[in-house]
Nucleic acid binder design. Sequence first.
RNA 1: GGGCCCGUGGCGGAACUGGCAGACGCGGCGGACUUAAAAUCCGCUUCCCGGUGACGGGAGUGGGGGUUCGAGCCCCCCCGGGCCCACCA
Length: 1057
Amino acid sequence: MPDSHRYTAELANHIEPAWQSRWAELGIDRQPNPGEEGFDASKPRYYCLDMFPYPSGAGLHVGHPEGYTATDIICRYKRMKGFNVLHPMGWDAFGLPAEQYAIQTGVHPAETTRTAIDNFRRQLQRFGFCYDWSREFGTIDEDYYKWTQWIFLKLYDSWLDTDRGDHGAGRSIDELITEFESGDREIRFNPDAAEIPTHLKSQSYDDWSSLDAGVQRDIIDSYRLAYIGEQTVNWCPKLGTALANEEVIDGKSERGGFPVFRKPLRQWMLRITAYAERLLFDLDGLDWPESTLTQQREWIGRSEGAEIDFEIADPPMGVDSTLLRVFTTRPDTIFGATYMVVAPEHPLVDAVLADPRETTDAAALREYVEWARNRSDVERLEGKEKTGKPTGLEAINPATGQRIPIWTADYVLAGYGSGAIMAVPAHDQRDFEFAQEFELPIRDVVYPVQVAAMAHFAAHAPDDTVAGDWRNALADLLGLVTARGSTPADFDSLLAVATSRRRASGNAPDGKAERRGAISGEWLDTVRSLEVETFDEFAELFRDAAYYEAEGGAFSGTGRLVNSSNTQVSLNGLTIPEAKGATLKWLEHSGVGRRKINHKLRDWLFSRQRYWGEPFPIVYDDQGRHHPVAESALPITLPPMTDYKPEVSDEPKPLLAKATDWIRTTAADAHAVGLDPDAKVTRESNTMPGWAGSCWYHLRYTDPANNAAFAGPDAESYWLGEGPNREPGVDLYVGGAEHAVLHLLYARFWHKVLYDLGYVSSNEPYRKLYHQGLILSHAYQRADKSLVPVDEVEERGENNPVETATGEPVTQIIAKMSKSLRNVVNPDDVIAEYGADTFRLYEMYMGPLDQQKPWDTRAIGGMFRFLKETWRLVIDEDTGAPRTTDTADESLKKLLHRTTEKVGGDIERLAFNTAIAAMIEFKNAAQAIEKQAAEKQAGTAALTADQIDRLMRLLAPFAPHLAEEVWHRLGLFDARGPVHTQAWPTFDPAMLADDEIEIPVQIMGKVRGRITIPADADTKTMEQLALADDRIAELLANKTVRKVIAVPKRMVNIVAN
RNA sequence: GGGCCCGUGGCGGAACUGGCAGACGCGGCGGACUUAAAAUCCGCUUCCCGGUGACGGGAGUGGGGGUUCGAGCCCCCCCGGGCCCACCA
């Protein structure tokens, strides 16, 4: 114990670890499960989850404790409010960085990861976070990844039955086979399987038992949620692995920023696209940040349209089909399709290269296709100029009957739709640019009617009025009407508004405005010729017209169809929505096309060619067919290896393939299902991606030691299910916004599959989500925008930072913390200097939790002072004894009730900064009272023992150690136990309001005086009091009071002139 | 190019539903203590004008307009910044 009883860093660093061990001894953070000793079923549940960290060798960053302190405060508060609180922590420990570190150092990643975990745990525990450490686990623990593998087997053994529920439901593969056998289900390949060629999907088979076993197997595999697909993936040679779409940012790997190339590969895929609609529509019920919901919606990228089959005029040999299938959201423009484009990866391109037409420049085509296929994504993103080559093939436009050329171009993506489009250059900007580049024909089929209307107006307008004036007038009008929030019922009233407005402002010397009003009859005729009925429609037309005039190019606005008729259908004169309907009807009737919903979301590439991940519970027989491993044989552990270096190569070589003894085994040894025990098998040598472990950790926390299941049903349903006083899903999930699509989408997918299969009791894993903002740092920038490390800058005078070496002035900016800028803050250093309580308080006080904010080393002192002064208020610094008074100050009494209400309310809405501000205000008020008292009698305390008791309970979630120490010194720890197990203080609503309040009196909206009124004064009383005020009466002396607005408890406003 | 979010003192921010703009903290200035500095304590601190002064007047939440008795908050246009997506037919 330090000699003095002052609150110093030394004292904080003494009491904090001491209380941490005491709490651990008492087990106050242990939350029992239902059925366990000490579980109280009468309490409501609160499951509060932090995104678990990836334990890097660098240790904790200041960003980690931000979210963790926030959840710690909420959990302590909820616990004091009488909840059963589940607040766990663990480690997301498989992944690339550990492996790359292993490559550099030669130390096994398990070893470095365990060291990093120990360091992370020590750092987190030093903050005093109230995690239930008895539930801790890492994704690398064998008894954890055993269940990750188990879930993979469930995905492997499941399919999505699209007939169940609104958007399908997962079921077991056995049930599918039963339905095929019994004839209850049409026997065919999965029509939604992206990896199955179109011609196979259109077939159907009569009798299951008579089918060849290989065909049966292929059909079944096409339904599995985990399947092997050969498709174009993101190949990163530097990392030696393929990556998921979500892991590629701007054409570079998310980890490391290395270039990524597209490459066809045979890999494990998860059929997340089957759940696209569920993942989209279920977002509606979630309490998530709007930006994250939007990102997920956009990533899923639903679009409604049609698929249309174009006949290939003279198909090359060896094509699967003589039809070229396209997806379009604009089937109404089919008469405008003047050419077609297929992706360079499209099978038709290979077919034509093998069997070129007379018109094909095969050499040029081959060269282009190879160039396009091997182009890295970065290169692709750089130049968006259109490139392409004709295939020499032609297709027949089913609407016009015309032969149109088929091109290949890389602006058409292989992975979306069918990798082929009908190009309508008149109404799609990309097609327009391509058509211009290669001089392809453009055929207008949608006529923008407003262009005609404007031309009409220009023709009929008075000589000195041009269409531009008309447009300006309308622009004003749009603003006016929209601002009013009302929409004129018809255009006569619209016009009336316009006319009166023009007249009212018609003081222009040349009388021009007057004339504008006078042409209103013309407007009306023009507007009527547009045949629109609502104001919104009108506004849209106007904006489209303005765009069309300004931009040129393809017209994608509102209009009516022209040039669109054949012997079977005529779209002429129809609006776009009408034309879409008519086209679809005709397409479906003639069998050339049908309605189709497409998603941007692709299936999830699940194989990584790396070492440090979960092995797949899969083996291959000598035919190369995959077989699952028995559940009883899990976990499949990683073989020991010493060399983790990937070969930098264009061909993927899984690292585990080097472990030949492990790879080559027998069915019996591997516990493969359904194979002869002596059969030679090869283990899957890929590993799962880092995301696998984080997809279900929220489930494992509910029952982490369970050996019989990933979680026991009672524990799982209590913590995640719906109940009398609980809603389904994790009650609060806090973590970084960088996971908006990746982890959060994957975890939702797994959770939904497990829900469908009856293993979990909530449809969604995380009901409420919150993102903490990034903690940034200050940095300096030279005039040329280059950055200067902070230690190479000095302040010369006020707000005048200069670069030490050159003396050149630099500007202070806000940037991410980085080693190169030498502005990284190490949490251990801050704790040594101020203690954990100050650190916690500072990070919570910086600003709103979800906002990014710069770290300001100087400002930490403010929070340290707050704690120090609070301490001094209640503890005698000479003796260390509590300082109390017997008589409570009236105003402080009230303020404490108000503070109690404010702090509780602010915690509920995660506004910790204002909660702390309220406590500082209370401290300031108490200090002022103490000073007053000291003038009469030295050494007088401000607070009663009861008030300190309450104050410490308020402070406990924020500064748990200081609160406990004061609590202890008051003798309350011995009498009632730790402050953290006490009830949250209550407040008396009667104490919140004053009897009398001071309110402002305004004249014409400006504050001119103040009056004191009874708090419950009605508007009449307030008005009388206001008018009776001397100063107000004086100011109103020569004025007539027109109106008085009095708002109870707020203000009085007098309208007078 | 598209979407989402945000612009408030020297700085971080507060103002929860349209009702006293700038709570609280940092920094700064002045003072006390000290040989001195640090630490600590006290006072002031949006800007401009007037007054020795308690005070009075004016402007003010990126800019312009609108709605309202009243706008940081609602509506329209513009400017600036951030994040995400990006040839998805």
